Amino acid sequence: MSDIIVQNLLSPVVLFFVLGIIAALVKSDLKFPSGLSEALSIYLLIAIGIKGGIELSHYSIESVIQPIIGALFLGIAIPVLTLLITRLMKMDLKNSIGLAATFGSVSIVTYGAAISFIEKNGVSYEGFMNALVVLMESPAILVSLLLLKIIEKKKDESALSMRNTGIISKPASLIDKEVIRESLFGKSVLLLLGSLVIGLILGERAVPMVKPLFMDLYSSVLILFLLSMGITAGQRLPEVKKHGLKLLLFGVLTPILFGGLGVLTGHLAGLSLGGVTLLGVLAGSASYIAAPAALKASVPEANPSVYLGVALGVTFPFNLIIGIPIYYEMAQWIQ
């Protein structure tokens, strides 16, 4: 286990991420232009999506139905578990929902780093795993916001019955159109899903055109993006410290719990060693793109320094350095 962690630590992807954290902590003037960071994220989303679509074109629906069900199960179960854990921690409802949406959704970059890790170890994986990334991006956001609406509605009904005023309030919709739009058509989901469909339609015919940019250069572009993310993560670390040790432990321990659940689900779905590892990585990761965008619009009372600070300042570095090897070891053990 220690050898795998050391091997992962000495990979270019992780070392450049650490370099970015160091740059932020020592207050270096190193920074990425916002336009470049945006372009790199768009590149990664398209690369993962189109590669997944091309690979998915090789499979029949019968061969992917069990992993799809497993991915949807995780997208529903993880936000519910996160909400229960955070409420036990005595966290307020809005920030609990923020963490539920963030940890229930997935990190595309962590997934990309996990692919580099297992390929470096000579482990193969199912090509349709990239499609599962798309499936796990939105359900957790929708489930978390639905839970918020249900809990708030019950509180309102309880307060109304206690006052016993006889006033009948107009029932509020459980989830508004803006939440659905942001969850299904936000930048990350739209690019992933759109690229996936394009790759699925074109299949191998797309390879000669997309291979030079979106396949051959993928690892190099990932290094640049992780250097940028390292700077951002380093800047978020002080925000997490302000909220105490419990939040720090949450950002480290829950990924292991959810990652283990993902590994078990992948094993029951019949995935290979590589596929089980990747599903564990997805389950143990936390979103800092799609979920925060939806939360900013739908739950403005939730504190970004809580859900984004933990996801980007704690869980993302933990997964990149230690988490991925842990999920790989879990997958080897269960397989």
Rank of each mutant, 00 (worst) to 15 (best):
292 P>F: 07
326 I>S: 07
145 L>E: 03
88 L>Y: 13
335 Q>K: 10
163 R>M: 15
265 T>F: 08
209 M>C: 06
103 F>E: 00
27 K>H: 15
178 E>A: 13
82 T>Q: 02
319 N>C: 02
82 T>L: 03
171 P>T: 00
80 V>A: 12
96 S>K: 08
159 A>M: 10
192 L>S: 05
77 A>C: 09
290 A>W: 03
170 K>W: 12
209 M>Q: 14
315 T>M: 07
331 A>Q: 13
62 E>N: 09
288 Y>K: 04
108 I>E: 11
83 L>Y: 15
276 V>W: 03
150 I>E: 00
47 A>G: 13
246 K>Y: 02
166 G>D: 01
11 S>V: 02
261 L>V: 00
175 I>S: 06
311 A>K: 02
16 F>M: 08
256 I>C: 05
206 A>F: 10
232 T>I: 12
25 L>E: 05
325 P>K: 02
109 V>S: 11
88 L>C: 11
150 I>D: 03
112 G>A: 15
130 N>V: 08
47 A>C: 13
126 E>Y: 06
209 M>K: 07
158 S>Y: 11
238 P>Y: 07
56 L>D: 01
272 S>G: 14
152 E>Q: 11
179 V>T: 14
178 E>G: 15
318 F>V: 01
214 F>R: 01
320 L>S: 04
43 Y>K: 08
298 S>Q: 10
316 F>V: 06
172 A>N: 11
112 G>P: 05
296 K>P: 04
213 L>S: 04
110 T>D: 00
21 I>P: 03
243 H>C: 04
65 I>H: 04
330 M>S: 09
76 I>W: 13
133 V>K: 08
334 I>R: 05
160 L>E: 14
319 N>A: 04
285 S>H: 06
315 T>I: 10
264 L>N: 00
45 L>P: 01
148 L>R: 01
94 K>D: 13
106 V>G: 08
17 F>C: 02
38 E>H: 14
97 I>R: 00
263 V>K: 05
159 A>R: 03
235 Q>F: 08
158 S>K: 13
234 G>M: 10
120 K>M: 12
167 I>Y: 10
222 L>H: 03
289 I>D: 02
180 I>P: 01
26 V>R: 12
69 I>N: 03
189 V>A: 10
237 L>S: 09
303 N>H: 12
308 L>W: 02
96 S>I: 00
150 I>S: 02
15 L>Y: 07
59 Y>S: 14
286 A>Q: 02
199 G>F: 04
269 A>H: 08
22 I>P: 06
82 T>C: 00
292 P>V: 09
125 Y>A: 05
169 S>Y: 11
8 N>P: 06
295 L>G: 07
253 L>V: 14
119 E>S: 12
52 G>A: 13
31 K>M: 09
321 I>E: 03
